[in-house]
Nucleic acid binder design. Sequence first.
DNA 1: TGGGGTATTATCACC
DNA 2: GGTGATCCATACCCCA
Length: 456
Amino acid sequence: MASPPEAALTDYERRREENIRRNDAILASLRRKAADLSAAIQSSSSSKRPKKQQPRASPAAAAPGSPVVLRRSLRTRGLPPSGSSSAASPPAQAPASPPAAPRSTRFSSSLASAILAAASPGSPPVRDDGFDAGAELVLRPSHVRRVVPDRILSVRILPLVDRTVVAAGNKLGNVGFWDVDEDGDGADGVFEYLPHRGPVGAIVAHPAMPQKIYSCSYGGEICLMDVEKENFNMIHLTDYPIFSLCQAPNSPSCLYFGEGNDLKLFDERMGKVSVTWNSHDNRINSIDFHPENTSMLATSSTDGTARIWDLRTMKEKEAESLKVLEHGRSVQSAYFSPSGRMVATTSLDDTVRIFSVDNFDNSDIMKHNNKTGRWLSTFKAIWGWNDTDLFIGNMGRAIDIISVDLNDRSLSATKKACLESEHMTAIPCRFSAHPYKVGHLACASSGGKVFLWTRV
DNA sequence: TGGGGTATTATCACC
DNA sequence: GGTGATCCATACCCCA
């Protein structure tokens, strides 16, 4: 696959700088207007809190008085992509435009300051503390929210020690944040933006730098959210879809992403792609680093394989992997267990497979119905807070917990429990485990809803 | 061998 | 409560 010409990238970078400056000016103006409106709303209302669940409205249909910024992509306006070398003149508005129609104006105060306050070097993610997922998880009715419209493709609980903020990206390019009310005082909120022009394949944030929230999209963008300014800056644009994104565990500014069939490294400090590995024969659906060995990573692909790589020995062309894990069909995910001793894959061949990293022949296969069809996001089994629990969606609007047991000579996986709730009104497709709160499990559906299971 | 056609599947807005 | 629209997945089948 060819990359965009270098000249186009530098041209793009120049325009990007201009766009950032222009957007800052627009944003400053909007913030003044929003502040005026906010003051007007507060003075005319006895309630100081935003409504718990405001009716969702498209930007064009938003209520008068809402701080609406209508973002229109170049594509929808029939213009060439801003990164295209054929673009004759700078676009009127870059895709990294001001936020569209936040559903509340609280983010910039309480939530943003909480995220920025958490920016001190993060403590390592927590591990199991004797938690029994099958018996202790519950879904409270207050822990269900529509976070974005339409189908969610990516969900991530931000790495904040004492707060639960769920970010979700959807098919339309929206990224929504749900600041969960955990005290029951009604102080939660949902904030919605439109930074992308295509489906949001992944959202990541590093525990050591939770204020830097990156997202990627099938439209070929990688965006970095500026939490303080509450806007998104496009830091990379390509003509090819970006399906997956992952941060290096020891270097949060090193972004590994799957651009079509290629695995690429974007170094944010350099502001460019520094390495490209031709690693798969089809789209890369997931990228995950080994938690201890920071040069080892796992990828999964629609080419029917999951592959384990050693960055130190990878060659750019026809890269050779440490191991190829063959599946009967497309592989949707390959994730290392919290200790790094195992890898779990989810495939459209209707299996979840678990492999020992020390000996990949030591493995087990679980049959699991992964036929989600066209309207649902595919299932991806994730690890919980220990090396025994795997969580995966179930077509019966439930969560399957697979229990894994690894010893020196054998590895076995069994279905341990099926979590069901009357409040789970849709099929949970994508999951995220809270990095600091054992038992806080977010799952996202194809209707834009997020369900947050918590500990009894 | 590869391109076109199509079956599959759940959710929600609208009536 | 019934129903049409969704349509950036995927795999399979068939035909050129």
